[in-house]
Design a protein around this nucleic acid. Sequence first.
DNA 1: CGCCTGCTTGATGACAATCAAGTTTAGTGG
DNA 2: CCACTAAACTTGATTGTCATCAAGCAGGCG
Lengths: 245, 245
Amino acid sequence: MPYTAPAEINTEQYSQSFITHFENRKNIAGYSKVRNILRYHPDQIIAFENDPITHLYEIMTGTVKTYKMLNDGRRQITGFYTKGDVVGLPVDGRYFYTIEAITEASICCHSKIQMKRLMDSDPDFTLKIIKSAHDRLRDAHEQMISLGRKTPDERIAAFLLKCQKWATIQIPAQNFIISLPMSRMDIADYTGLRQETVCRIFSKFKRSGLITLLRSDQLILNDHRQLLKLANLSEDNSETIPRYH
Amino acid sequence: MPYTAPAEINTEQYSQSFITHFENRKNIAGYSKVRNILRYHPDQIIAFENDPITHLYEIMTGTVKTYKMLNDGRRQITGFYTKGDVVGLPVDGRYFYTIEAITEASICCHSKIQMKRLMDSDPDFTLKIIKSAHDRLRDAHEQMISLGRKTPDERIAAFLLKCQKWATIQIPAQNFIISLPMSRMDIADYTGLRQETVCRIFSKFKRSGLITLLRSDQLILNDHRQLLKLANLSEDNSETIPRYH
DNA sequence: CGCCTGCTTGATGACAATCAAGTTTAGTGG
DNA sequence: CCACTAAACTTGATTGTCATCAAGCAGGCG
């Protein structure tokens, strides 16, 4: 896959950034220097595994994935990220994952150096950075029990509920139609299954009325309660579940 | 399992703490107030999943594990920790894992409040906190590709190399004998296998000469090169591999 | 010594991976 | 607008592998 440099776009059209998002105010020392929004195309790579860490990335729009690969091509997707998610930490070291855009995505790239400087002057900001690390770590642990101990059905159920969560973030309120921006292969590489198995479970859930498949990338969750029960989620997702009508 | 409060022990006999460990100096404002070393017995629980976060824990001696459980008893061990490892972050929220001692362990408990206060006054200290979060996150991602995409043989190989790393930290230099403080069941719950499968792979590795089993909890790695190749580790572990004689 | 717990080995079966064949969808050009 | 192509998705048939069930073994401790 050829690497094409992402286009730098006008930052003025974006009202949000890492700092405003977390701080709910608009001006901080060094703000404009840090801010740097880039637009990425599907399948475009944002950062490579093992490259030195230079930035942390805040997703503004679109969906992004992180993954690790083995030398023989086996791949594990370690996370999907949408609006508001922050990938990376301002530390010296190398990325232990590749970051790749799934859809068109605008991403705010914060330089590590500037982040460090900002941390010195603003304790609240520092806490937000640590909070984002905590979020990533919670996700990772949830995924570990999924991969290590849950059945394929449970993993897919958990995945679907996660998708719903993202949907409610990107398109707040209403709308029960959930879009899956990622391919079946991506879902398989996230859940530790094969794409055929993912398909079969989707079909099974459809037959049992648990979900409705409008298209291969659009579905409706018909029975959240059942899905939640099946997913065996240990984290409390109740606050993000829209009410039934 | 009955919960018994850990014994508070004399802090004077310990020369190291989170701060001195990371900072290489001995006095920081609030230092003595933060410092609080407790001793835990095997199988004693240090913190429960879903309890509010009150402390972060720095392992001084012994081995500790974190795990998540499903309501039907399935368990995933998400990490093992030894001397120098830090578990937890100074954020508001709840532990998303249970922390339990495997061996006798002395643990420095740093109160979240004090940690936050310390972060305000010392940017270097803050960076160390973030670094420890980064380390935990790297481990988690490595474990995700292990659980999701590696074969049982590869997972055990990776696990054994990790054990060696811990051994070289706890007992620096020489000594090729590696002690496994955890049970077969623990290894199974860490690698996403069953204890019978773990046993079989141990036996297979033994038959092939890859390892020597002195006792069920003591072994020697006879062929690091082969083991590394088999483990398919994406992180660079070369610096922690002792030389052959 | 005998019991108990943890570890090891064996036999069998369930289930997801694999291999293979369709089917749908999206994109392209006449 | 439709024909054609390629890629993504879905379904089917078979196999291999790890979980399961079961039995034996070894070490630790009263």
